[in-house]
Design a protein around this nucleic acid. Structure first.
Lengths: 237, 237, 237, 237
DNA sequence: CATGAATGAGTCTTCATTCAT
DNA sequence: GATGAATGAAGACTCATTCAT
């Protein structure tokens, strides 16, 4: 990969011929990611071998090693991409809800996180396995830190509350959200916890945030107890 | 069990012949459990091999297979014992708090669960790895079901609340408790989430239970909104 | 085993006390033999382990090693007993048919061998597996030699024939009988070769013996050319 | 196969890319076959382990498993190749002797089978061991069926005989030929049965075929009763 | 004498990684 | 750059045999 364009500098703009290679690279990488996830789902972490991944991706082991120094690097990359996407989704939601009420915020992050995590439940479920490997935990932790940071900033802007220890509250919200969904996704699908979790977590988060809030800083009446699904309601004229 | 025949020496060659054998057996089994946990802690699930476990236990692979049909059976047994102990601790706490207030109940189960889980944090942390293996998840799920069932019974007896859907509330409490502690234990010890989690989870659970309660059944004024940071505040005069 | 009664001569008839031991010994040995055969049938040679044999025999490995120095010795003993029984049956038949006609002899030995071998077809089939082990072949060979020797003596007494090379003929008859039955027993039961083999081998052996006989020594007319399918027809008046 | 592209050098980078791979493959597979046979001969079935086979073949266990899913598959392949060759030899002989006399046919198949089986006596001897393993018997049976089928067709074309139950006769001939040679090869080389078996089996088969033939269909006088010891005797004047 | 737990060498098999083509 | 055959260390598991009880 490092020498893919040895002549690059000498022929600045003449060779779109080289682009396909670039494209192929990203294509291969994407294929490897997707393949890794599929193999992980179908075969489990132990049988998620380089050969199988390469085969499912339609390449060879050799090519896999062209892009990743070893198996764990690939798996780590897959996990990072997944967790990055989740974190980004939550960050976006947090940004969109700056200045909202606690209830709206609670609803927003629960919805955002669940939506991201349940886009492909099988994938999410399978990736938990990687998170147990040495470095997986730290990747997951990094993701949670991003979420907590975004939460902290959002909560700081709450229209109807102020917090003494916003860091702790954010970290707890992140841990509870993250952890309970993990439990629900990993557990036997039969108990249907995941479905009920959406509503319950909104209640739970709202209640927790309110309980943790210093006070109602602006004397605003709390609008609603059960924040509903739907975009933010427009500010009253 | 060892003293089933205290008069052993006077009756030289009778039934007790089998006892020393069982004593040896129990010893070996215990050693294997302990060794499995230690290897799991020190080396991780992947390097937690039969050879290493046997070596750390001071026996041979052969002996391991005398007591367990395969590696996974041993690990499962270790996990089962651990989770069984946790579940038992929570069940006991739930029994002790029949008829208490929601706030007391919340505090009780959080304390009980954390105490059990933090008795040996390294062990708890390490055992999460097993829960990812195929059958580990179901063992964990079974433990959570025991917890949820105990919670349901306790909550049904609450002095100051009634619930519409006690099953869901219990399941959610179990998932949140279980999941958030998992996250905290697994994450980098540096962030010290575990310490703060005790207090926060009490706030959170109290708030959630109140928010989920149908109504104040006996017209009792809810005593306090924020029982956090420090023990419960004295009852209002 | 050889010294079970070292004091035998000195205490001629006083100690039936020792008999139970003897009895138990033979009983255990018999049980081990039977168990070995059963395990061999049910599990195959590879899974025919000392532990399994002892278990099926209702004893312990330790006891097994009281009677046999190692696994192979037991297996060899089992094979020897089986082959000895077969050889004895054939020897008896040969003795019974001294002076008979070739046709009668042929029928007799085929019948005797098949009867012995098919008394317990599963056992016979299973024991072929042992015969492949180093020493098994020589045990089988010894059995065949006994058969060949008995045949030679019987053939030498034939009423209606004389042989130039009786050793060769006997050895060939033994090999053909032994070998074809082996093939039939080992092959897929579906083809039903075993059933037809009885009749055919009589024809075949009769024909071979006649073809190998030097001449009709006493001017006796050969009674029948095809003694097959059905019992021998009575001699024409 | 190696020379499928003799002009290889002129067309540098095309389809043949896969050929050298196959060449290597074939080489490895052949080496494994040969090694398996040698180890089987030298060490016996029990000590014929994957490691030893790979070592003798000059490769690694890994390579063995690249071509065979497990040890038994390799051994089965070896046995199949051997038995296939034998069967083919007999089939060819049968085809060559369509329309011959029974005596010629008998001589032909005995000669063909023995020649094939004795090309490498040690190999033949060793391979009998595989035939005892579960699937080995069915492979051997399949070989015998091919032989029996070829025999049936040949016998149907006999110039001097007709058969009532040609299937049975063929099956018996196959079993007797196969079985007696097995016995002779497996037995102690000392008794020299194999050498004499050639002549004897011709006598035996001829006698059996004649005895089994319905009648002399064309009124031809049976030329000779004893073609044994030495080549055929001169026709009677 | 009987028992059966302990032993550990030895089997099969898998898989990350390399490297010749 | 791509390929996939080769490698061999390492893992799970079995079993004959011993020996303390």
């Amino acid at each position: 990969m490092e020498f893919a364009f040895p002549m690059n500098s000498t022929r600045p703009r003449l060779a779109p011929r080289k682009l396909p290679i670039q494209a192929r690279s990203t294509h291969t990488v994407d294929a490897l990611h997707a393949a890794a996830v599929q193999v992980l789902i179908r075969e489990g972490l132990l049988r998620c071998t380089t050969t199988r991944i390469a085969a499912r991706a339609g390449t060879s082991v050799g090519s896999l090693y062209q892009y990743y120094p070893n198996r764990d690097a690939l798996l780590r990359a897959v996990l990072e991409r997944h967790i990055g996407a989740i974190a980004a989704a939550v960050e976006a939601a947090c940004r969109r809800h700056q200045g909202s009420s606690l209830a709206e915020m609670a609803a927003a992050i629960v919805r955002a996180y669940l939506a991201a995590k349940l886009r492909d439940p099988a994938e999410s479920r399978a990736l938990y396995a990687i998170a147990d490997e040495r470095d997986g935990a730290s990747i997951a932790a990094r993701g949670r830190e991003r979420i907590a940071a975004a939460l902290a900033e959002m909560l700081g802007s709450a229209a109807d509350a102020q917090f003494e220890d916003i860091e702790t509250v954010s970290a707890v919200v992140a841990a509870v959200l993250t952890g309970s969904v993990l439990i629900a996704l990993r557990g036997p699908a039969a108990d249907g916890l995941i479905e009920r979790l959406g509503t319950e977590l909104v209640t739970l988060m709202t209640a927790y945030l309110r309980a943790s809030a210093k006070s109602n800083p602006k004397g605003v009446t709390m609008p609603e107890t059960r924040p509903r699904r739907g975009r933010r309601s427009p500010p009253p004229p």
